[in-house]
Design a protein around this nucleic acid. Sequence first.
DNA 1: TTCTAAAAATGAACGTTCGTCAACTTTGAA
DNA 2: TTCAAAGTTGACGAACGTTCATTTTTAGAA
Lengths: 214, 214
Amino acid sequence: MSEPKPEGRVARRQRRNRAALIRSARDVMAEKGVDAATMLEIAERADVGAGTVYNYFGSKDELAVAVLETLMHELAVRIEKVTDTFEDPAQVYAFGIRRVLDTATTDPRWEQMLHRSEVIADAIFRTMGPFAIRDLRLASTANRFRVSNPELVWRMTTHTIIGASLAITKGEVPAAAKNQIVARMLCMTGLDLDAASELAARPLPDLPSYIEGE
Amino acid sequence: MSEPKPEGRVARRQRRNRAALIRSARDVMAEKGVDAATMLEIAERADVGAGTVYNYFGSKDELAVAVLETLMHELAVRIEKVTDTFEDPAQVYAFGIRRVLDTATTDPRWEQMLHRSEVIADAIFRTMGPFAIRDLRLASTANRFRVSNPELVWRMTTHTIIGASLAITKGEVPAAAKNQIVARMLCMTGLDLDAASELAARPLPDLPSYIEGE
DNA sequence: TTCTAAAAATGAACGTTCGTCAACTTTGAA
DNA sequence: TTCAAAGTTGACGAACGTTCATTTTTAGAA
């Protein structure tokens, strides 16, 4: 281990390049969609040669996943800031779901990504899973939910969120149905329909904006 | 309308070509996956020129959707044959879901398609929707389910099915969890967890094999 | 500061792909 | 038999992700 070594120019440039590439890819993919975004344009916007991208990401897909994870981590942090003042553990989980659904259907950067459902669902599962699964556990021990296998319920919920977001984005389902959607998703936690509907209809506090560096 | 005209050679050849293309595409895509299947190989296996494919299907994606719809229609017909003897309308819906989940995780032709989650979920929604939505309605009027918006519940369920199938296929969730998965999906119909679990655990009659021509 | 070997960046070139198109063949009514 | 319309064909263009030989930059030793 040679950790204490001072950060050299290489390391600094690599961090800058990596960040610039993710930022560039995030923008291009949000504008044109993942498929229409070309590696060349992404590289150019990041002020980097076409081949350099492959020193940082093994493939276009890997880059797309990195972009997704960035977006989701930011959202998870913002949600966390609000929910850690909540009393009811079930409400913490419900709030998270509602905000993810809202963001996915509102933020144009997410919308373009929705078409890679399986990739995005997996990214949500991994990135936001630690928060969601913890909340599911807490609410279960508090006897609000009845979840024996939180990983499973969370995985099913991520796919449902993406599916619902897609349907709303495509106009197949009105955005006004969001509360209904959330209620049905909450039913998967063992809550009965009435309790779930009530939980999904509670007032929704605003999210704080994201501040770089945790 | 010139319906009564006897079917000419053109029409006959077109039907043959179209069917051959779908069959060919179904095989190649099942073997190599949707992306790895090239339009050239599909055309060759159907004994047709490379350009001809585009007279029948506007794009590779359109062809993939046609393949999916064929598979799903066959499955829907097979399910229908069993369930129209059931007494409990809730069980009809539950059986359908269970069988779709089973097929998606077992049939190699489905497995390869799972990676286009959003396309396949949409195809399930449209192709099997008429059956599923009807069953949801029947079970609701019988007071077994509580579903005010069956289209919405069905749409959410399709995405959940695909997500769960993907997870099982990738080995992230054991196949033994299928009953749990189905139970949680049934919760979305307003059923409480215990009733849903019971319904998901009932003995599962076999499916008849598919017989060409309804 | 100067030198050097290793690490990183570069962008032209490569191999594939989808989808198009002008030439060709088949069809069936007159 | 004739011939315009409909259908088929495979070579082709354009565009993409990825590779790799070459050049540039770096960190540390002399």
